[in-house]
Structures are given as structure tokens and as C-alpha cells.
């Protein structure tokens, strides 16, 4: 991607999205990079903070809405998506962002992901995937590799990790990407694209935990092994190819857009609006609603 020079100067700046709250994150946490990319992506998109609803669950990563000037909702563990869907359906003009950890999204909240995807609600779901539970002090996460020793898997985990990319792709998400704070320009561009995409968009961010994470997941290690899908000449309109690449989650670190449906399917929120418009034509006046029960 090359921005033509001279580049357009956004009217909103990254700093307009930054709040005064001081992050409690451990210095070095990958989430610091993520929030920087979010500020810039939002500035690029150009919607003012008051038109943005930023929803999260519980976890270190879920603190992120508080560090922005958007309307934030730091809800309960695993339930960011249901709340966000309610917000978007009730007020479709809002830009709705959802964020959380791998545990929040794929363990306790895992059941909700498939449904948000199949409804194709126009929102952007960002998962800061660190393969561990940060806020509760380093327990196993659904994306932890098999064999990982943690305080709840003293002798090594007995489970295969869940693959967030395959999960979301296979339920038919129209936009799926993976980024990392090891490449902030790439992450910013990807987030901007995801936010602009008209439909459910998912960005898995490999955001390392410096306190409980594995050495191999840290930014330095990521810089060594990450491969840009664009450089691999991946065609992001090919869902099957995207699925096949996504299988390497956990072994390879591909960054960029895995899949972007070139013909965005209709979103649930748009369909709701259309149905409301269609049916309101022959509605009884509100004050006459009881006429429905009138025996004639």
C-alpha cells in the first residue's frame, strides 16, 4: 500500500481518540501498540468519537475502550458481542467496535461469535490474542498451544488450541484479517479497512503478554517470523485459499487480510431497517394499538 504524496491530512487526529485514563497494562504489553493503531485507524475513518460505541468484555485487553474517547462499555466477561449487537441494531448509524481477549472471545464468549458472524451485523470485532489469561494471572487460554504449562495446567495442557481464524471463516465471516503490533502501519491499515467494511469484520491481533506469555510470542520473535499475505500474493477474495492458509494458525504468523468478500452480503442491521420501513406503512397509530384486540 502506498499513500500518494502529498497525503490527505485527516481532519481528526489520533490524539482526538485518546483519553486521559492511564493504562494499567504492564509496560511492554502488546496492547499498547494495538491501542495506538486503533487511534490512527479511527482518525483515518474520520467519524467523531461521539458517534463510536466501543464495547468490550473483561480482561486486560478489554480495558481498551476506556483508553479511547469513544462511548465505551466495559461489560462482563465474554458478553461484549451480544451487547454490541443490541447497540448496532438499536442505533445502526453508530460505528460499533468490539474488543477483548482470546479467553473473553473464544472461551466464555465463544458461543456468541458464530451468531454475530452468521447475522452479519456491521461491526468490527478485534481480538487481542495472547494465548493466555492475563488479568487472572496466567491460566490456560483456548488458544494456548498443546502442552503449555500454566498454573491450571501444571503438567502441560492436554488440549489442542482453538483456531480463531478458521472458526470465524468457517461460519462465513465476510472480512477476516490478522495483524500484530510488530507491524503497526500494517495493523492500522487493516483496522481501517475492517472498520470501513460493510458487514461483520474480524481482526485477530497477535498481541503478546510480556508478563505471562511465551518468549516465542513476543514482538521480537514475531518480527522474525511474520509473513505478509500480500507478499505471498494471496488473493483475499478466495475463501477456500483463506481457509487453507488459516490452518497454519499457531505455526505460521501470516499478517494481512485472509478474506474479504468482494460482494458484501446484506447486513442484519440493514435488513432490519428495510423491514421496519416496509412494515411501518400499514401500522396502526400507536395510540390505537389496542384496536388489535377489538372484536368486530
Amino acid at each position: 500500500m502506498t499513500l500518494a504524496m502529498p497525503a490527505p491530512v485527516p481532519t481528526l487526529q489520533a490524539k482526538d481518540f485518546r483519553s486521559d485514563l492511564k493504562p494499567i497494562w504492564c509496560p511492554g504489553c502488546g496492547d499498547f501498540g494495538v491501542v495506538q493503531a486503533v487511534y490512527r485507524a479511527l482518525a483515518a475513518v474520520g467519524r467523531p468519537p461521539h458517534e463510536i460505541a466501543f464495547i468490550s468484555g473483561i480482561g486486560c485487553s478489554s480495558r481498551i475502550p476506556g483508553y479511547t474517547t469513544a462511548y465505551g462499555f466495559n461489560s462482563v466477561h465474554g458478553r461484549a458481542l451480544p451487547i454490541a449487537q443490541g447497540i448496532k441494531i438499536a442505533h445502526p448509524e453508530l460505528l460499533v467496535l468490539v474488543a477483548g481477549g482470546d479467553g473473553d472471545g473464544f472461551s466464555i464468549g465463544g458461543g456468541h461469535v458464530a451468531h454475530a458472524v452468521r447475522r452479519n451485523i456491521d461491526l468490527t470485532y478485534i481480538v487481542m490474542d495472547n494465548q493466555i489469561y492475563g488479568l487472572t494471572k496466567g491460566q490456560l487460554s483456548p488458544t494456548s498451544p498443546r502442552g503449555l504449562k500454566t498454573v491450571t495446567s501444571m503438567y502441560g495442557s492436554l488440549e489442542e488450541p482453538l483456531n480463531p481464524l478458521m472458526y470465524v471463516l468457517s461460519y462465513g465471516a465476510p472480512f477476516v484479517a490478522q495483524g500484530t503490533p510488530a507491524d503497526l502501519p500494517g495493523l492500522t491499515a487493516m483496522l481501517e479497512e475492517a472498520i470501513r467494511y460493510p458487514g461483520f469484520s474480524f481482526v485477530n491481533i497477535q498481541s503478546p503478554c510480556v508478563t505471562y506469555g511465551e518468549e516465542s510470542g513476543q514482538i521480537k520473535a514475531q518480527k522474525e517470523k511474520m509473513k505478509a499475505l500480500a507478499d505471498m500474493k494471496h488473493d483475499p477474495t478466495d475463501r477456500i485459499k483463506a481457509l487453507s492458509l488459516a490452518q497454519d494458525y499457531g505455526r505460521e504468523l501470516y499478517t494481512g487480510v485472509f478474506f474479504r468478500d468482494p460482494n458484501p452480503p446484506p447486513t442484519y442491521d440493514a435488513l432490519v431497517k428495510a423491514r421496519q420501513a416496509e412494515l411501518s406503512a400499514n401500522a396502526l397509530p400507536r395510540q390505537n394499538i389496542l384496536d388489535l384486540f377489538l372484536q368486530k
Binding site: 504524496m5 490512527r40 503490533p181 503478546p208 513476543q218
Partner: peptide
């Protein structure tokens, strides 16, 4: 006419 949008760590330390 240029922006800071895509400039992160020319001289600034990496966020981590």
C-alpha cells in the same frame, strides 16, 4: 500536506 498517520517508530522506541 503530509500526515503522521503511518509513522510510528522512526525515532520513537517500539511500543513494546
Amino acid at each position: 500536506t503530509v500526515s503522521r498517520q503511518m509513522l510510528f517508530d522512526v525515532e520513537a522506541p517500539d511500543t513494546d
